[in-house]
Design a protein around this nucleic acid. Structure first.
Length: 847
RNA sequence: GCGAGAGUGGCGGAACUGGCAGACGCGCUGGACUUAGGAUCCAGUGGGGAAACCUGUAGGGGUUCAACUCCCCUCUCUCGCACCA
């Protein structure tokens, strides 16, 4: 055994060993309890970053821990390999997206292996492989059959920089989720997945996601955005058209004093002759600072009381929600109130907060949006607004004036992308037959290799005659192939199902899927709270309805890990600086004092990244894993600290040194321990070891708080460091402590643990060993510190035998010299005893 | 504006169901070993104080024998939603 721990030697050695043993592999086996542990697969952008390291370290600890707990663990990895960066690289560097992608995959795979991650590579998925994406196409055809995929022309989000369409979920603050460019609206014919058919189910399902962070479920609920109300038809004075509005407040129908329609509403063009005014309102569409409107000169008739309501075109009314038209009740809606004040429109109160609070309409300073009692509402007067909602909606429906409606914000998922590097949509257009699906037997529709990237936008597929020109499968006439490709979120919506079967088993093996699904623990960033996680929930339901799985929810437990952050440095003139550029707090270019910026998410642009490769070279994979698990609990942001890494490195060395120095004692202890009839000596180290096992186990089980689990192991090591083993029994005990420590350390620092495991005389790999158990008897303290308070203030600490009765504890406390002094001559009113830990003596008149 | 989460030493972070605030690590201080130390080991380390002791979990109030923990108010930060009718 070497005196110093040499990670360069031992880490590759054990990686090779695990690979040969197939230590990460798994097979479906209904006789065993399964555990599916999954980390979000990466986009192969070139090399891994610290966010990946953290994500995968967390997953690997869980996978290894669960294996030791006896679970049949599925822990796969793959590549989200279609997407824009490959295409951009192709344009920029004249390298084919396929070559670029596969090279990145090879490089990153090697990086992951160097971290000692226990994946089952037999199930590796690469989404740009035809054997994978043919199933995207197959699902597309199935969804088409079920009416869940359809084509329509509509205004869609267009990112000018990416030269492609984006789904609603992919627009963040009116910018592109990938490149931040301002998104514009463009009218295009596109393919959609009818996710809205599952809106209600997806919403309801949010309440069953007990293993998810609540905020993620809340974000999905908000995104689905259900609201219940009614659609009501208003007639237009002197015109044949009807004006259909949606409202969640039918109880305020009698309070309507005007109507508003969106500038893009079909009636807007018809009802106003003043086109410049209409354009003006259009230009202000969606601007939140000001409400702008234009009176059309027409009036709508309230179907309930035949009141006349002027129709306005207003910038704050959204065409994409509800019917694009609203009834305005300024007394009970703040937006309508503001609009009414600006344009001098009447305000009519129809709900009183309390029965006797009369207030004139003119004196209102804001809308009253709460609940109350109806007034000025005909036969509904006196009804509670809560009840009136249903009553008026019912009335409207019975009279044929409208109907009760549920509205969702969720829109169908637009999946067409005008890009090359994605799954071809299996459709052929024929002048006679229309959009004809490619027959299943012709799948996959292979993405052609030989393409030219102009970089000027537009899919290069358009220019490939052999691809585009194809006969109609139905009538045989010359047709034209769809050149749009699928959104890459389609790829990631079912990859976790593909993993259930090995590469040679066929992708949709129902037995495998039934055994492994759902994912027991999913780990990834919060940025997919709506995107990928919502699409996957939708897709899983589609698979369920296709009979492929019986599950509705793909991910039982979700852990959203925090970001990896680091401090930043910034020169007021030259911007972000690398930490090593900054010497004595000055900018290397201009010599000006630099600002120590905030701690921010690692990013190349802020120059605060740490390269995992450099770290592996310097400290090894185990140290890097250990630090990233120790520095913060997994769901919280992690602040990178170079000195903290040193600390983790030191910790491993400390253990190594301990085993190195005491090796003979340990081996002797092992012999003693293996002898029959040996019973362990009850001593502090034994107690500490059992308590550590208990603590580490429960910290992992409860929310995966690895930071405190590692801290507990550190405590144990500290205690072991000062332990002297002279007698055989002590050696046996020390051996027992070392053995358990190594076992517990294994999921965190697996190479290191394997090496020490063999150094203490084991011949079978530790990866097959069971997780240690603790004995509650041994974990008990024999002496405890009894805290004695007087009026809640700490006055003494007494070392007493464990299991003291309340009476004994009280006696001990009251007879303590210090306590006697403090309570001398005072009237003891009460003594509170917390079993085995604390006595609080309450005396009159303070201390 | 609405919703959620958070605020604890010089720093990252601990603290069960209300019961010793600051586990563990980093940093710092002192010491040992050493030609040397940015290695290693040992000790100390919330603040004030010589000490007894006092004080301390964003700020203010409350409940309680006892509050980081529960309740009310205020401030700050982060995230999400944001004219959704």
């Amino acid at each position: 055994m070497k005196e110093r721990f040499d990670f360069n030697e031992i880490e590759p050695k054990w990686q090779k060993y695990w690979a040969e043993e197939g230590a990460g592999n798994s097979s479906a086996d209904p006789s065993k309890k399964k555990f599916y542990c999954l980390e979000m697969f990466p986009y192969p952008s070139g090399k891994i970053h610290m966010g990946h390291v953290r994500n995968y370290a967390i997953g690997d600890v869980i996978a290894r821990y669960k294996r030791m707990q006896g679970f049949n663990v599925l822990h796969p990895m793959g590549w989200d390999a279609f997407g824009m960066p490959a295409e951009n690289a192709a344009i920029k560097n004249n390298v084919h997206p396929s070559k670029w992608t596969y090279e990145n995959v090879a490089f990153m795979k090697q990086q992951l292996d160097r971290l000692g991650l226990s994946y089952d590579w037999d199930r590796e998925v690469t989404t740009c492989n035809p054997e994978y994406y043919r199933w995207n196409q197959w699902f597309f055809l199935k969804l088409l059959e079920k009416g869940l995929a359809y084509r329509k022309t509509s205004f869609v989000n267009w990112c000018p920089s990416c030269a492609t369409v984006l789904a609603n979920e992919q627009v963040v603050d009116n910018g592109c989720w990938r490149c931040d460019s301002v998104v514009v609206q463009k009218e295009l014919e596109q393919w959609f997945f009818r996710i809205t058919r599952y809106a209600e189910e997806l919403l309801q399902g949010c309440d069953d996601l007990s293993g998810w962070p609540e905020r993620v479920a809340v974000m999905q609920k908000n995104w689905i955005g259900k609201s219940e109300g009614a659609e009501v038809d208003f007639s237009i004075e002197g015109r044949p058209e009807k004006l259909k509005i949606f409202t969640t407040r039918p109880d305020t129908l009698f309070g309507v004093t005007f109507m508003c329609i969106a500038a893009a509403h079909p009636l807007a063009e018809i009802l106003t002759s003043d086109k410049p005014a209409l354009e003006k309102v259009k230009a202000q569409y969606g601007k939140e600072d000001d409400k702008v409107g234009h009176f059309t000169g027409h009036y709508a008739i309230n179907p309930l009381d035949n009141g006349r309501a002027p129709i306005y075109i207003a910038n704050f009314v959204l065409m994409e929600y509800g019917t694009g038209a609203i009834m305005s009740v300024p007394a009970h809606d703040q937006r309508d109130f503001e609009f009414a004040k600006k344009y001098g429109l009447p305000i009519k109160t129809v709900i009183q907060p309390a029965v006797n609070s009369q207030q004139s309409d003119e004196s209102l300073t804001e809308a009253f949006e709460g609940e109350g009692v109806l007034v000025n509402s005909g036969s509904f007067n006196g009804m509670r607004s809560k009840d009136a909602k249903a009553a008026i909606a019912d009335f409207v429906e019975r009279q044929g004036l409208g109907k009760k409606t549920i509205n969702y914000k969720l829109r169908d998922w637009g999946i067409s992308r005008q890009r090359y590097w994605g799954t071809p949509i299996p459709i052929i257009y024929c002048d006679k037959c229309g959009a004809v699906p490619v027959p299943e037997k012709d799948l996959p529709v292979i993405l052609p290799d030989a393409v030219q990237f102009s970089g000027t936008g537009g899919s290069p597929l358009l220019n490939i005659k052999e691809f585009v020109n194809v006969d109609c499968p139905k009538c045989g006439a010359p047709g034209r192939r769809e050149t749009d490709t699928m959104d890459t979120f389609v790829d990631s919506s079912w990859y976790f199902v593909r993993y259930c079967s090995k590469r040679d088993e066929g992708p949709l093996n129902k037995n495998n899927i039934a055994y492994w699904m759902p994912v027991d623990q999913y780990i990834g960033g919060i940025e997919h709270a709506v995107l990928h996680l919502l699409y996957s929930r939708f897709f899983t339901r589609c698979l369920r309805d296709l009979g492929i799985t019986t599950q509705s929810e793909p991910f039982r437990n979700l852990l959203t890990q925090g970001m990896v952050c680091k401090e930043t440095w910034k020169c007021p003139e030259h911007g972000w600086l690398f930490p090593e550029e900054v010497s004595d707090g000055r900018c290397p270019q201009c010599g000006k004092a630099v600002d120590k910026g905030r701690v921010e998410k690692m990013s190349k642009s802020k120059k605060n990244v740490i390269d995992p490769d450099a770290l592996v070279k310097r400290y090894g994979a185990d140290t890097m894993r250990l630090f990233s698990l120790f520095a913060a609990p997994p769901e919280r942001d992690l602040e990178w600290s170079d000195q903290g890494v040193e600390g983790a490195y030191r910790f491993l060395h400390k253990i190594w040194g301990l085993v190195f120095r005491c090796r003979q004692d340990i081996l002797r202890g092992r012999e003693i321990a293996s002898q029959n009839g040996h019973s362990p000596l009850i001593a502090p180290l034994l107690r500490k070891t059992h308590r550590t096992i208990k603590k580490v186990t429960s910290d992992i089980e409860k929310d995966y708080h690895f930071n405190t689990a590692i801290a507990a192991m550190m405590e144990l090591v500290n205690e072991m460091s000062s332990f002297k083993s002279e007698k055989d029994e002590e050696k046996a005990m020390f051996y027992m402590a070392v053995q358990n420590l190594i076992l517990m350390l294994f999921p965190f620092a697996p190479h290191f643990a394997e090496e020490l495991w063999s150094e203490i005389g084991e011949t079978r790999g530790i990866y097959r060993h069971a997780w240690p158990e603790w004995d509650e008897e041994f974990a008990k303290e024999e002496e405890v510190e009894l805290v004695v308070q007087v009026n809640g203030k700490l006055r003494a600490k007494l070392l007493v035998p464990a299991g003291l009765s309340d009476e004994e504890a009280k006696d001990k406390a009251l007879n303590d010299a210090k306590i006697k002094e403090v309570t001398e001559g005072k009237n003891i009113k009460k003594v509170i005893i917390v079993k085995g830990s604390l006595v609080n003596i309450v005396v009159a008149g303070g201390v």
